[in-house]
Design a protein around this nucleic acid. Structure first.
Length: 269
DNA sequence: TTCCATGTTCCGCA
DNA sequence: TTGCGGAACATGGA
């Protein structure tokens, strides 16, 4: 699930469960992809410090460590990553734990990543990652207003879906939420940006912010999402919840894409 | 057994 | 330079 809203929920989860308590034990899965650091140095850096606060940019979660030198733990969740916190000694770890942080008092925080497509790193600041990966702005940042959004996307000429998902353009949208946004905005995902007029671009911007905020508010629980959303109904052949069209599975930019054949004006390709 | 998947990156081509 | 298709990575579920 880890797109922007999911990572924001992870962030709030860390805030609620794991801050300001000394780290007394660290386990790192040596098989997991680490971003330029050894498992040993991750463990050594975390031990005896605290998790002091969190930040997020796009799909990246950053957790500030207390003490010095200044360091942030960077977590990226790939396609199948997540977090889990629990208390108590007994019982085995959940499956696919790649990083487990034991806190004083017995609570544990674990980063799970089934397919190991995520990444764990240590950085001096979130900006270091943003610069290194050339990430675009986060779509929920205050300064991504409709004019800036138009400028950013207007600099590109490819398909709207592919461009929205490009982390160097905007950081945070993935396959599922991009489909949701274009579905709600009534825009065919294969449309090329130069063919979309400014009214349509403003609508995409408005819907994007609304969808991301709402998904966070319902804690990315599909059952709590509005009935007219696509996300809980990504199935080929389902009835469209917004019109009398049908949900179709197509392919755009090599990714499975769900669209309404009626209100998104999909053309056979 | 085969296909598929919420992500990213690299390569070759136009 | 930009965009795009394909492949690769690793793993489990349908």
């Amino acid at each position: 699930m880890p797109e922007l809203p999911d990572v924001q929920v992870f962030r709030e989860y860390v805030d609620a469960t794991s801050l300001h308590v000394p780290i007394v034990a660290v386990h790192v899965d040596a098989e997991h992809e680490l971003d330029g650091v050894s498992a040993r140095s991750v463990a050594a850096t975390l031990r005896n410090r605290t998790l002091e606060g969190t930040a997020r940019h796009g799909k990246h979660l950053f957790i500030a460590l207390g003490g010095s030198p200044a360091r942030w733990l960077r977590l990226h969740f790939g396609m199948t990553g997540g977090l889990r916190a629990w208390s108590g000694e007994g019982g085995p770890d959940p499956a696919h734990v790649r990083l487990r942080i034991g806190l004083e008092g017995g609570r544990k925080l674990a980063y799970l990543c089934t397919r190991r497509l995520g990444a764990i790193g240590l950085v001096e600041s979130p900006d270091e990652t943003i610069e290194e990966l050339e990430l675009g702005p986060d779509p929920l940042e205050d300064d991504v207003g409709r004019d800036r959004f138009g400028e950013i996307l207007g600099a590109h000429s490819g398909r709207i879906k592919t461009t929205l998902m490009d982390q160097k353009v905007l950081a945070g949208l993935g396959n599922v939420y991009t489909d949701e946004i274009l579905f709600q905005a009534g825009v065919p995902p294969e449309a090329r940006i130069p063919d979309l007029d400014s009214t349509v671009m403003q609508e995409i911007h408005r819907v994007m912010r609304r969808v991301l905020r709402k998904a966070i508010r319902v804690r990315v629980d599909p059952e709590r999402m509005p009935r007219r959303w696509l996300l809980p109904r990504r199935d080929d052949g389902r009835a469209c919840p917004r019109c009398d069209g049908q949900i179709l599975k197509v392919e755009v930019g090599g990714r499975p894409t769900f669209v309404c054949d009626r209100h998104q004006g999909v053309r056979p390709s």
